[in-house]
């Protein structure tokens, strides 16, 4: 196979308390591809996404069983440093959540906590590059000291993307990144996502099936904590092999 496996789940289970949220997930995600995770709400798609950078660790009583490998290394191994993992696996959230700081300060935060710059010029250059990569630079280059809250929703989300990529992650997780945005902003973000796959492996959770069809290379359909079907997006949307997938995609439930 020409594709490199970046992420692999092996018999992966996740529980809140005793309640099973993910059941025996077996799943391979490929490098420099965009993989969409779709499914009705409560199907476990967000839980899976948040397992990839161990954001679920923040929740009391969250447990996992099985293996979740990134580059053949189980990220739930005892000696894995979560900080280092999250540096490698960036995340963009459902609602834009910029820090209550300046635009510059938002991007610089990650560089500062990881001490990833030599001097101010280097810091500035890195901030500039990431804003350019996130297609936001032209809109904000004169207002870098303005509060991030002064940006529009779509701009804020691109700022959050820039904030995630500035620390050079290998993987970017996106949790319904456009669900709170208008169609124009959504189009811009989708275009950006397609461009970003050149450098990053992208996993995106979305409840918008057209979006999954538009941006992703692969799609995974989750239902009630199980991975029902996983294939190339074109195949999933034109000739799904599972009846449930077909019913969901044609809008019979969800």
């Amino acid at each position: 196979m020409e594709n490199n496996i970046r992420i692999e789940a092996r018999e992966f289970n996740a529980y809140y308390d005793k309640k099973c949220a993910l059941k025996d997930i077996n799943f391979k995600i490929f490098s420099n591809k965009i993989t969409a995770i779709i499914g009705p709400s409560g199907c476990g798609k967000s839980t899976f996404l948040r397992s990839l950078n161990r954001m679920n660790d923040l929740i009391e009583n969250f447990n996992v069983k099985g293996e979740l490998l990134i580059d053949n290394e189980n990220i739930y191994d005892k000696d894995v440093d979560v900080i280092f993992l999250r540096k490698r696996v960036g995340m963009v959230f459902q609602k834009p959540n910029p820090f209550p700081k300046s635009i510059f300060g938002n991007i610089a935060y990650g560089l500062r906590i990881h001490k990833m710059f030599k001097n101010y010029d280097d810091l500035y250059m890195k901030v500039e590059n990431s804003l350019k990569e996130a297609a936001l630079w032209d809109e904000v280059k004169d207002d870098l000291n303005k509060s991030a809250f002064d940006l529009s929703g779509g701009q804020q989300q691109r700022l959050c993307i820039a904030r995630a990529i500035v620390i050079n992650p290998e993987i970017i997780l996106m949790d319904e990144p456009t669900s709170s945005l208008d169609p124009t902003s959504t189009a811009k973000i989708e275009e950006l996502i397609r461009k970003l796959k050149e450098h990053y492996t992208i996993v995106i959770v979305t409840h918008n099936m057209q979006q999954a069809a538009r941006v992703s290379d692969y799609s995974a359909f989750f239902m009630q904590g199980e991975l029902i079907e996983y294939d190339e997006t074109t195949k999933i949307f034109t000739a799904p092999s599972n009846k449930l997938t077909e019913e969901y995609i044609t809008g019979r439930f969800g």
Partner: peptide, 22 residues
């Protein structure tokens, strides 16, 4: 809000950094 803490943690900040800086 939780979203602010999550944003910081997702960037690989530890708890102390998140509390101190955000």
């Amino acid at each position: 809000p939780l979203s602010l803490r999550e944003a910081s943690f997702a960037l690989g900040a530890n708890k102390l950094q998140t509390i101190l800086f955000q």
